[in-house]
Amino acid sequence: MATGGRRGAAAAPLLVAVAALLLGAAGHLYPGEVCPGMDIRNNLTRLHELENCSVIEGHLQILLMFKTRPEDFRDLSFPKLIMITDYLLLFRVYGLESLKDLFPNLTVIRGSRLFFNYALVIFEMVHLKELGLYNLMNITRGSVRIEKNNELCYLATIDWSRILDSVEDNYIVLNKDDNEECGDICPGTAKGKTNCPATVINGQFVERCWTHSHCQKVCPTICKSHGCTAEGLCCHSECLGNCSQPDDPTKCVACRNFYLDGRCVETCPPPYYHFQDWRCVNFSFCQDLHHKCKNSRRQGCHQYVIHNNKCIPECPSGYTMNSSNLLCTPCLGPCPKVCHLLEGEKTIDSVTSAQELRGCTVINGSLIINIRGGNNLAAELEANLGLIEEISGYLKIRRSYALVSLSFFRKLRLIRGETLEIGNYSFYALDNQNLRQLWDWSKHNLTITQGKLFFHYNPKLCLSEIHKMEEVSGTKGRQERNDIALKTNGDQASCENELLKFSYIRTSFDKI
């Protein structure tokens, strides 16, 4: 039985969820670079991206490699990797027998973001014989899940209580170790020597080791999670996991709180800001991140802002960003909400898709409305799209047979046209069989910064309504002859009103 693990408890099935942008060198404390989270699957090609990484700022997932063999891993080693800020997950990587050479110096898994409450997941690794993470000293947050690894031993010899604050939620089941077939031998045991430290858990006094050649490092209890030197002297209180010299914040392997210019500090002093819960960055760093993602459509890219001495992905609820200094300031009234469309555009074809934009005031991208039916549609669209004030790209209304009016965009005031449909149009209306009105132009103002209007096959939309939009939106004169079809717009509506004058002759039985 794995020490510190839980057996036999019912657990939810383990679901495996399925960018080499360097964020800056980590400095003297770390020998390499800070790398983003990685999802490495199918083959070993991307694994080489770990070569210079000291910190993975995010998670590391290595999974679904069915053609790899043990010899493929023999020359692979990433000794610079010290810390993973989120979680480490391995799933069905064939041929991998140990992690001792792959990650010989991995010391800390912070667990800032977890995989279903777990910071370390080893699942269905069919050839893994031992973990071998002999320098792993601290899992700051989260638990361990090690399950269905039929060859995995050296679990009962690990004292997880020396690595985690609590072992109650560890789930370590259905491994070879369960069948008591392992016969784990710690260093020196074969020669009758006791080389590794022994600890007591559940009444068992057991030597602690990761492999037959690597003991588990056990520091004096007084050192807590700070770690200790090879001689057993406690590291500085700002260290986490390990250090090369005692009581020196510049000799830590990793930091308990924050890293700044080669030393570990309790908090980031001005003019620095907390970033990702582990390091200090200056304003320029946060500003660069903001600008890199301002026009990016890459998933996970955030326009970072500053709030409460932190550089964070977005302002919290009730705050909006001051564009001059990136500071989050309290909103006066309802907060603006910028919604970034991942692929640059979004099609609204149902109430469900409209709900995804609920509360958005600025759309960074283009909207395509293609709704053919739905219950209580006008009210639903207004509830979900009615706060949109600005669209950076274009607005396209296409084959939306259920629409009679666009009044559900009740606050839309600006279409920038930074991206144009077919390279020309910022407003595009095609084949809307029941569209009769755009907006009530006596109450609604709309500016279209650039781009043209396109109207074709809107049989109940009168040309007068379209011409009014040209005047109000500032697009009059931009359109070419064929942009607004004269014969297919309003051709099934009563669009022309003329005053009919009647004269009559009164007659009676005795007068003409």
Rank of each mutant, 00 (worst) to 15 (best):
L29S: 07
G32L: 11
V34I: 03
V34L: 07
C35R: 00
P36A: 12
P36F: 10
I40Q: 02
I40R: 00
R41Q: 05
T45I: 09
T45M: 08
T45F: 04
E49I: 09
V55P: 00
I56A: 00
Q61E: 13
F66P: 09
D72M: 15
F78V: 04
P79K: 03
I82F: 12
M83I: 13
M83C: 09
D86L: 00
D86S: 03
L88A: 01
L88W: 01
L90C: 11
L90Y: 01
L96S: 03
S98F: 02
S98N: 08
S98T: 09
L99K: 01
L99G: 02
K100P: 02
F103V: 03
N105M: 04
L106Y: 00
V108F: 02
I109V: 11
F115P: 02
F115N: 02
V121H: 05
V121A: 05
I122Q: 00
V126T: 09
H127T: 11
L128E: 01
L128I: 08
L128S: 01
E130F: 12
E130L: 04
L133E: 01
M137W: 11
N138V: 15
T140V: 10
R141L: 08
G142K: 01
G142I: 02
V144N: 02
E151C: 06
C153I: 02
T157H: 13
D159K: 07
S161V: 09
I163V: 11
I163H: 01
E168Y: 03
N170S: 06
N170F: 09
Y171H: 12
N179V: 11
E181A: 11
G183C: 14
D184S: 12
D184L: 13
I185N: 12
C186R: 02
P187S: 06
A190T: 10
A190D: 14
G192K: 15
K193R: 15
I201H: 15
N202W: 10
F205S: 13
V206A: 04
V206G: 07
C209H: 04
W210E: 07
S213T: 03
S213N: 10
H214V: 11
P220D: 14
I222W: 15
G227Y: 10
G227T: 09
A230W: 10
H236F: 02
E238N: 09
L240N: 13
L240R: 05
S244Y: 04
S244P: 05
Q245P: 01
P249S: 06
P249E: 03
P249Q: 08
T250G: 13
V253H: 05
C255E: 00
C255S: 00
R256Y: 10
R256L: 07
N257K: 04
F258T: 03
G262F: 05
R263P: 02
V265T: 09
T267A: 14
P270C: 04
H274R: 07
Q276W: 03
W278K: 00
C280T: 01
C280G: 01
N282W: 02
D288T: 04
H290S: 06
R297G: 08
Q299H: 13
G300R: 10
Q303E: 15
Y304P: 05
H307T: 03
N308M: 09
N309W: 06
C311I: 05
E314M: 04
E314N: 15
M321H: 15
N322G: 13
L327E: 13
L327W: 04
L327T: 08
